[in-house]
Amino acid sequence: MKYKNPKYRKKRNTFPLEVSCGNCKTPMVIYAKGSKGNLIKLQVHRIIASAVDLENNEGHLICTNCKEELAWKGSFDGNETYWIIRGKVNSKRLSGY
């Protein structure tokens, strides 16, 4: 990953998850997931590293390789959040990260 997230805060009982583009399989984000459910949203303070500069990213999350829109930007409980478009991303649990 190219960019480390300066807003990342460690959270207990989380595991790293690599989120990649569903079209071209390019890794986009490493995310600290907290529960066993489906990946619906990416809260910015839980993103560990990213292929896109999140500080200067004003709009939606777009793949750097194929320019496909993966998630749209919104808000959840007062936190900046990327809401994933269903079927556009793949996720894989990382061990030892």
Rank of each mutant, 00 (worst) to 15 (best):
S91D: 13
P6T: 05
L61G: 04
G74E: 09
C63M: 08
F15C: 00
H45K: 09
K25V: 04
L17P: 01
C24E: 08
K92V: 10
R12A: 14
M28K: 11
K7D: 10
R12K: 14
R86D: 12
C24N: 08
L61K: 06
E18I: 12
H60R: 09
G22N: 03
S35V: 00
A71F: 04
L94C: 03
N57Q: 14
G34C: 02
N79A: 14
N23W: 01
R12W: 00
G37Y: 05
G22Y: 01
G37D: 14
R93H: 02
N23C: 05
G96L: 06
K7Y: 11
S75T: 13
I47L: 09
W72A: 00
S91A: 08
K4Q: 14
E58H: 03
R93G: 00
Y31H: 05
F15G: 02
V29T: 09
R93L: 04
K92W: 05
K25L: 12
R9Q: 15
N56P: 00
I84K: 00
D53G: 08
I48R: 11
Y82T: 03
T81E: 06
M1T: 14
E58G: 01
K41H: 15
N38D: 13
L54H: 07
T64L: 07
R12L: 10
R9P: 00
S50Y: 04
L61P: 08
S35C: 09
C63P: 05
I85W: 00
I85T: 10
S35A: 05
T81I: 10
A51D: 12
A71R: 04
E55M: 06
R9M: 11
L17F: 03
N56L: 12
I84R: 06
L94P: 02
G59I: 02
Y82I: 02
H45W: 11
